[in-house]
Design a binder for these strands. Sequence first.
DNA 1: GTAATTATATCAATATATTGATATAATTAC
DNA 2: GTAATTATATCAATATATTGATATAATTAC
Lengths: 163, 163
Amino acid sequence: MPRTRQNEQASGKPPSLDYDIANRLFFRLYQASNLMHKQGTRYVAEFGTTTQQWAVIGALAHPSVIDRGMTVKALVEFLGVSRQNLAILLNRLEDRRWTERIKDREDGRSRRIRLTATGRSVWTAMQKPIEAFYTAALADFSPDERTILYRLLDRLKTGLATT
Amino acid sequence: MPRTRQNEQASGKPPSLDYDIANRLFFRLYQASNLMHKQGTRYVAEFGTTTQQWAVIGALAHPSVIDRGMTVKALVEFLGVSRQNLAILLNRLEDRRWTERIKDREDGRSRRIRLTATGRSVWTAMQKPIEAFYTAALADFSPDERTILYRLLDRLKTGLATT
DNA sequence: GTAATTATATCAATATATTGATATAATTAC
DNA sequence: GTAATTATATCAATATATTGATATAATTAC
């Protein structure tokens, strides 16, 4: 992954250009992701939240689900994380009274996760630092480039999901 | 981050298109990264290694450092991870006899991390599944698109590093 | 009505990844 | 020669993120 410079295999044969580009690409994905979490967390440090928690809150804040909440299953699928990992994340948010678990009236097995009033106002307060983060992180990109990158990443995500 | 659909702020004002695209972009970065680790680890499962360990081994396998190794400091900088995290990673690789720590003759404080002969042959054996992973993950991309994505990610990494 | 399936919760184990802090030895600055 | 700085190692605490497995209750299939 991190062999960003030309390399020779033990057999003495140089890697293909495809391999090299892919290698560089995925190494950048690794680095960018770590930095996103590191810097993103800095921008919302005043709330004591992490980028992952902000992802969950953001999902729950969407107008189409903000009143009814989302099932655990829907959140797992939407965020693309494991159930166990999400459970711990949710416990943390619930401990802080930002989210609540309510019974799903349509399916007795199910629980819906919903933002509390506190969670909503926290999310609102977070908008400014979140926007500041986005602005700073993408300062070097034109609007077109942002859209292109978004689309390419979307396709990469899909490719990885079906690998 | 995960508000991939049009949203209204609590104040009733829709987010700017910039905010929305950025939001989608970083959510995709999150998802793609998690999937990269998940699937990448699958492809090298036979070696019992993780994507992060493969990143370290790959760095150490480069011809410009394969004989002399790299200092811990250089590895920290190259990989962009914390010293503590790298230390644990290195301990794992060393426990497996894939890497070794040797004295740096030019600086008595320093240790150079180097691939062992075993580490080298493991790396060689890993090339096939690594290449298979790259091929599968990027099956939907043209060569041009791969290069474009790599470059955009590189710039994103740089932007995040200086945020 | 019963077996199979599903939603949730939880336990366990393992591996990142960050920040803060300390200690020792070697190198550099003055 | 001494203070300041640096490289490494390590301890601590916290938060992801994955896989495997189990249990209970509710729903679906037949």
